[in-house]
């Protein structure tokens, strides 16, 4: 049986941002790419969604305090 690691209850939703989205995000935040938290390219989930080094991954977490919160990581 083939299953997706992303279905696990501990894994929040990961998405790769497109180039335009990434640029816009960095503009809003007013920071450079390297200032974002990182995720490794060989991270099981990064591999599953096909993220390449240099991409920005958008993570939508279920938060205990805010209900839902968005987080970004740079693939390294």
């Amino acid at each position: 049986m083939k299953f997706k690691l992303q279905d696990h209850m501990f894994v929040p939703k990961h998405e790769v941002l497109s180039k335009e989205e990434a640029e816009e995000l960095l503009k809003i935040l007013g920071i450079g790419k390297e200032q974002l938290p990182k995720i490794r390219a060989d991270d099981p989930i990064a591999k599953e969604i096909g993220a390449k080094p240099g991409d920005i991954v958008k993570i939508t977490r279920k938060s205990l305090t805010a209900g839902e919160s968005v987080f970004y990581r740079l693939v390294v």
């Binding site: 299953f3 690691l5 696990h8 929040p12 099981p44 989930i45």
Partner: peptide, 23 residues
Amino acid sequence: FTRTTTNNIYEIYEVLGIEAARN
């Protein structure tokens, strides 16, 4: 598997990645 967990955080990191480890 979606509801199966361990209390070994490093194992979760290796199998399910950094965000799962955070959780």
